[in-house]
Amino acid sequence: MYQFKHHKSTSVDHASELHSNSDEGLYLAGGMTLIPSMKLRLTAPTDLIDLSSIEGLAGISNSYAGLRIGAMTRHCEVSASSEIPALASLASLIGDNQVRNRGTIGGSLANNDPAADYPAAVLGLGATIHTNKRDIDGDSFFLGLFETALDEGEIITAVTFPIPKRAAYAKFPNPASRYAIVGAMVSDSGSGIRVGITGAGACAFRARAFESALNKDFSVDAISAIEIDHSDFNVDIHASAEFRGHLIGAMVRQAVVQLTE
């Protein structure tokens, strides 16, 4: 690892100021992706602005809009929460126990790894992302491979998940890394169905064809014939684009089965 300056920030404003005063500064949340990248010397920030010392960035609370989860809330805390069982279940499938004990929801969303789990929840549950500047509709947050709507230096402070009538997450993990090869969050808000998919594309997306079919008929049969265009899907040694396309159907069906059985 190269040398850097470590800063403990005392508030979101302080962190933001430290960031703008740094040469190539990066925020440090849980560090589960950033620290290995630094160890491998694939990134070399001049400054690390540690968000863990900021009061009030962690924690789960109920708000009028749903379940509000502070950006520095660790995955293990989300997996232990009870308000949205599908979200807790998703969190319990991230990485391993030790990753869940350190990794944070804000860090994961800001990183926007194409195979991370939380993006499926943001889209599948229709969440809103709160930052130090604004609220961002979850649907317009993920822009591309590791690309989000966040401006340079902007800090996620919390995420609010509306509480669905019912929801389920099904994940096909990479046997080596445990990232999602495909993950599908299916939710029924009472007024509509959402299907958030991660792992398959450059970033998470909503599977509209599945949503409209399920809106008409919430059953496995309603979606069994849907073919999804996989031409732009991710390709690696673990799964071709075609297999990822197939797995989207398989995971959505698994989630629907969970909700209908």
Binding site: A115, G144, L145, Y179, N234, I237
Partner: peptide, 13 residues
């Protein structure tokens, strides 16, 4: 060696 899962997507991008 470390990030082969991302190579195709990143190059495409």
């Amino acid at each position: 060696q470390i990030g082969s899962r991302l190579i195709v997507s990143a190059s495409r991008k």
